[in-house]
Computed example of a mutant assay.
Amino acid sequence: MTAKPVPEGRYVTLQSGYKMHLIDQGRGPVVVFLHGSGSGACGHSNFKHNYPELVAAGFRVILIDLLGYGYSDKPADIDYPLELFVATVKETLDIVGVERYTLIGNSLGGAIALGLALAHPQAVEKLVLMAPGGVEDQPEYFKMPGMALMKEVFMSAEPVTAARLKDFFIRGMVVDPSVVDEQTVNERFQLMQLQNPQVVRTMKVPNLTQRLHEIQCPALGFWGADEKMMPESGILKLVHGVKNLRMIVVPRCGHWVMVEHRELFNRMTLDFLQHG
Rank of each mutant, 00 (worst) to 15 (best):
E214K: 12
P231R: 03
D226A: 15
Q190C: 12
V250D: 02
Q216I: 00
L191A: 07
P218D: 10
C217V: 13
R164N: 05
P231V: 06
N196E: 13
F265M: 06
R211Y: 14
K166F: 03
H255K: 06
T161L: 05
N196I: 10
Q195S: 13
G224N: 06
Q183V: 13
Q193R: 15
K166T: 04
W256I: 02
V249H: 01
V199E: 03
E260H: 08
F169H: 09
Q190F: 07
Q193L: 11
F168L: 08
S233Y: 02
W256A: 10
I235H: 04
P177V: 04
S233N: 11
K243F: 01
F169G: 00
P218Y: 10
N266Q: 04
Q198I: 11
D181Q: 04
C217D: 02
I235K: 12
M247N: 06
W256K: 00
I170M: 11
F189Y: 15
P177R: 03
N207D: 12
V174H: 09
D167I: 03
W223N: 01
P231Y: 07
V205R: 06
P206Y: 04
K243V: 01
F222N: 00
W256Q: 10
T161A: 04
Q216D: 13
K204W: 05
Q183H: 13
G241I: 00
V180E: 06
Q195D: 13
E214C: 07
V185R: 07
C253V: 06
Q193G: 02
G254L: 05
V242T: 03
G221T: 04
R171F: 02
M192I: 01
E227M: 08
V175E: 10
I248Y: 12
M173S: 14
H261K: 12
V250W: 05
V205M: 09
I248K: 14
M203T: 07
V175Y: 01
V174I: 10
F189R: 05
S178Y: 07
V257H: 01
R188I: 09
F189E: 05
G224Y: 04
E182A: 14
E260F: 06
H213W: 12
Q210V: 08
W256C: 09
R262W: 12
I170W: 06
G234C: 08
V180F: 09
M258E: 10
F222E: 00
F189P: 04
H255D: 06
N266L: 05
R262Q: 12
T184E: 14
K204P: 00
D176T: 08
V200P: 00
R246L: 12
Q195H: 13
E214S: 11
G172T: 07
